[in-house]
Amino acid sequence: MAEKLFLEVVTPQEAIVSEEVEIVVAPGSEGEFGALRGHTTFLTSLKLGTLRYKDANGKERLLFINGGFAEVLPNKVTILAESAERRKNIDITRAQKAKERAEERLAAKTADLDFSRAEAALRRAIDRIKIAGTMK
């Protein structure tokens, strides 16, 4: 049996994941990256997106990551995220409402619209919905 990689996903509020895994795939700021045990050491910023990993039993797990940093070591990956949610904890109704609000703000094009903020809210909502499995 191959040696595992230890994954920790931590937010300012709580530890989300702390377990041995086979592989981690994360949304790096310069593009998606994957890490297996023995990977070379590096540090990178993360963008909003999906963190995927296979647990010790080979089952794929998904998390929504809202930015942060990743430290990759040969035997450990640490994700320090601004926020993170496991797939099972995503409130679909709340995410759908957030998507609708963001779309309405962007469509209204009012003078006081903070476009980048509204666009980021829309991206967060869409990613959360995709991870939850209700949108293709």
Rank of each mutant, 00 (worst) to 15 (best):
A120I: 06
A107T: 15
Y53F: 10
S29R: 12
L122S: 03
G68F: 02
E30R: 14
A26F: 13
E119K: 11
E19R: 08
Y53I: 00
M135K: 08
L113Y: 14
L46T: 01
V9M: 05
N66Y: 07
T11W: 00
T93L: 14
N89R: 10
E14Q: 13
E14H: 12
D55T: 03
L43P: 13
E82G: 14
A132N: 05
E119W: 11
Q96I: 12
Y53N: 00
S45K: 15
I129P: 00
K88N: 14
L7K: 00
M1T: 11
R105H: 14
K130N: 05
P74Y: 03
N66R: 04
F64Q: 00
L106N: 05
E30G: 14
K130W: 02
R61C: 12
A95L: 06
E3Q: 15
K47C: 13
R86C: 08
R123V: 10
F33C: 07
V21G: 00
L80Q: 08
G34L: 05
T40N: 14
E32S: 15
E82N: 13
E14M: 12
G38P: 01
V24I: 10
P74T: 06
L73F: 10
V17E: 00
N89F: 08
H39A: 10
N66L: 07
S83E: 04
L46A: 02
I92L: 12
A111K: 09
L5P: 04
A118G: 04
A125E: 01
G68P: 03
E19C: 09
R94C: 04
K130F: 03
A56P: 13
F64E: 01
I129G: 00
G38F: 07
I23T: 06
R87H: 11
F33E: 06
P74M: 07
A125T: 02
R123D: 11
L48E: 12
K136C: 13
K109G: 09
I92F: 12
A26Y: 11
T40I: 15
R128P: 02
D55G: 05
S83L: 07
A84P: 00
K88L: 13
T50H: 10
G49T: 09
N66P: 03
K136H: 14
R105F: 15
T11K: 00
L43T: 14
L36K: 11
E85A: 09
A35S: 01
P12A: 09
T11H: 00
